[in-house]
Computed example of a mutant assay.
Amino acid sequence: MAYGYIGTMRTVQDHRDEVVRILLSGTQGLRAAGCLLYVVSVSDSDSELIHVTEVWQSREHHDASLRLPETQAAIAQAMPLLTGEFTREELTVVGGLGLA
């Protein structure tokens, strides 16, 4: 079964769009790294909240992706724009529309 990750992050005021751009800038290599689905969403009711939904071939693929130079660079760029308020949920993905 695939590994799923759903997380939220809160940005400092007026920086949500910038963080979204950072999160979406490094998607080119995700499929090769084992990512099956990567979706960045923003809250309609909270102007500083971002949701990230990911599905990976395995947890190991996800963990390895966090060590990629481009991922490390994106994290370093985004961190000063975040408040430090995060949530995360790890899941076992059993199927659904959009997954191979």
Score class of each variant (00 low, 15 high):
39 V>M: 01
44 D>V: 03
47 S>T: 07
92 T>P: 00
58 S>D: 07
14 D>E: 15
49 L>R: 13
30 L>R: 15
49 L>A: 04
33 A>T: 09
78 A>W: 10
43 S>W: 02
20 V>G: 12
32 A>C: 15
89 E>A: 06
38 Y>V: 14
32 A>L: 14
24 L>I: 09
31 R>P: 12
38 Y>W: 11
29 G>V: 13
62 H>P: 03
30 L>C: 13
18 E>V: 13
61 H>C: 14
90 E>Y: 06
41 S>Y: 04
50 I>P: 01
61 H>P: 03
57 Q>G: 06
30 L>K: 11
82 L>T: 11
86 F>A: 02
24 L>P: 04
87 T>S: 14
23 L>G: 11
79 M>R: 10
32 A>D: 15
65 S>A: 14
29 G>N: 07
63 D>M: 06
56 W>H: 09
43 S>H: 06
57 Q>N: 06
83 T>Y: 05
41 S>L: 10
81 L>M: 13
46 D>A: 03
87 T>W: 01
65 S>Q: 09
50 I>D: 11
53 T>N: 08
48 E>Y: 04
21 R>L: 11
55 V>G: 03
77 Q>D: 02
57 Q>D: 09
58 S>V: 05
38 Y>Q: 02
54 E>Q: 15
60 E>C: 03
53 T>P: 00
43 S>V: 09
58 S>Q: 11
43 S>A: 09
55 V>E: 00
91 L>A: 12
91 L>P: 00
23 L>H: 08
92 T>L: 07
41 S>M: 14
88 R>Y: 01
90 E>N: 10
26 G>W: 09
22 I>K: 08
43 S>L: 08
73 A>P: 05
85 E>Q: 12
16 R>E: 04
63 D>Y: 01
78 A>Y: 02
50 I>T: 07
77 Q>P: 02
32 A>M: 11
87 T>R: 13
39 V>C: 03
68 L>A: 10
28 Q>S: 14
19 V>W: 14
34 G>R: 11
87 T>M: 01
16 R>I: 06
32 A>P: 10
85 E>S: 07
17 D>K: 08
31 R>F: 11
18 E>Q: 15
30 L>V: 12
89 E>D: 02
51 H>C: 05
74 A>Q: 11
74 A>R: 13
14 D>H: 07
78 A>P: 09
92 T>A: 08
40 V>M: 06
20 V>H: 12
27 T>L: 01
84 G>M: 07
36 L>F: 04
55 V>L: 04
52 V>L: 12
21 R>Y: 08
64 A>N: 03
74 A>W: 07
40 V>F: 04
20 V>A: 05
41 S>Q: 14
31 R>E: 13
38 Y>K: 03
29 G>E: 12
85 E>T: 09
55 V>I: 08
79 M>H: 00
57 Q>H: 12
16 R>N: 08
22 I>C: 11
55 V>H: 02
62 H>G: 03
90 E>Q: 00
32 A>E: 15
18 E>N: 05
24 L>Q: 15
78 A>G: 08
85 E>M: 01
50 I>K: 05
85 E>G: 06
79 M>Y: 00
78 A>L: 06
62 H>L: 10
86 F>R: 08
72 Q>R: 14
